[in-house]
Amino acid sequence: MSTYIPKVQSKKGQLFDSLFILVLVYVSLYIPLFLESDSKSASDTTSSQVISWESLNVSPVEQEQWQKLGFDETAAAEIINDKFDYTIDPVMLGITALVIIGYFIFMLRVSESQYREVIAEKFGDKTSRSEQEEQR
């Protein structure tokens, strides 16, 4: 196999490539702000209720620890009533699974063909080498 001679990249090209990957990172950081499906939601609204430690279902020891941390019942209620919603959207789950599996399949397949080029250049072409050995 002939040795691959790579292109030499200009300074401008190097700068462009460095910036490209950075822009890509920032875009992916900001995309979720537009797609946000935050699973957190305050399920119990407490604003219209009278809040007491008893209504928060807090034991005396828990109440003591909350108070040591500097929280009264109103401040504690905001945290206690903030709950997660773990409802699963099966379509989104399926899409996500497909994306992750597809990504790895794509990467492994392309890597495999690139790796064969690397090995062929490093160790020589296997088929031609074995043919030469047979002829000897």
Partner: peptide, 18 residues
């Protein structure tokens, strides 16, 4: 479960970069 949108957007980053 917690960050579904972030997960997809980060995967999109690695796919485009690849």
């Amino acid at each position: 479960l917690g960050y579904g949108a972030s997960l997809l957007s980060i995967m999109a980053f690695y796919i485009v970069a690849s």
